[in-house]
Design a protein around this nucleic acid. Structure first.
Length: 152
DNA sequence: GCCAACGTTGGC
DNA sequence: GCCAACGTTGGC
């Protein structure tokens, strides 16, 4: 089993939204590296740190799990969507996503600031200089450390 | 294939 | 709103 971190702007889609809907297709990712992770490597049962970006409380807000693997992102075919891609076609889709389901919401967001201060997490991709990927792998011990931080 | 210009991400 | 870092585009 693998571990991931997915970023979302809570104004667009928050951990509360996921809790309310139960599952969601992780649409709108328009970066090839992030797409490749979702298309090729995110497997059912993998656990996901749900990260809130560009907001008041930046940090990991909860946990989700991959519930459906690799399928075309439907928003790329929707002309009314901001994620519409006219260079994509249904028989040759460019963008793929996966579905995630709600697992848990932390009592308190684990702040990015504390993740940066935690020596055990110094190699996490999230805190590397210039890191921007919205879908990124997380090591097992890093995942567990973030869970540990959420308990205290 | 290079690279300048432009666009986006995302913390601060 | 600023800006560093990164990604994409398109002319050559």
């Amino acid at each position: 089993m693998k571990y991931w971190l997915f970023k979302s702007e809570p104004d667009e889609f928050s951990i509360d939204d996921l809790q309310a809907s139960g599952t969601t297709a992780w649409e709108g990712v328009r970066n090839y590296q992030a797409r490749n992770f979702m298309r090729d490597e995110c497997k059912k049962g993998d656990l996901v740190l749900f990260y809130h970006s560009s907001c008041k409380e930046i940090g990991v807000a909860g946990v989700a799990a991959v519930s459906k693997e690799s399928f075309p992102d439907s928003s790329q075919f929707n002309e009314d969507s901001p994620y519409f891609d006219k260079k994509s076609s249904k028989n040759k889709p460019r963008w793929f996503c996966c579905e995630v389901k709600f697992e848990k919401k932390f009592k308190k967001v684990v702040p990015l600031k504390e993740i940066k201060e935690n020596k055990k997490l110094k190699d996490m991709y999230l805190v590397q200089k210039g890191s921007r990927l919205s879908v990124q792998p997380v090591k097992e011990d890093e995942f567990k450390e973030v869970l540990e931080m959420s308990r205290t």
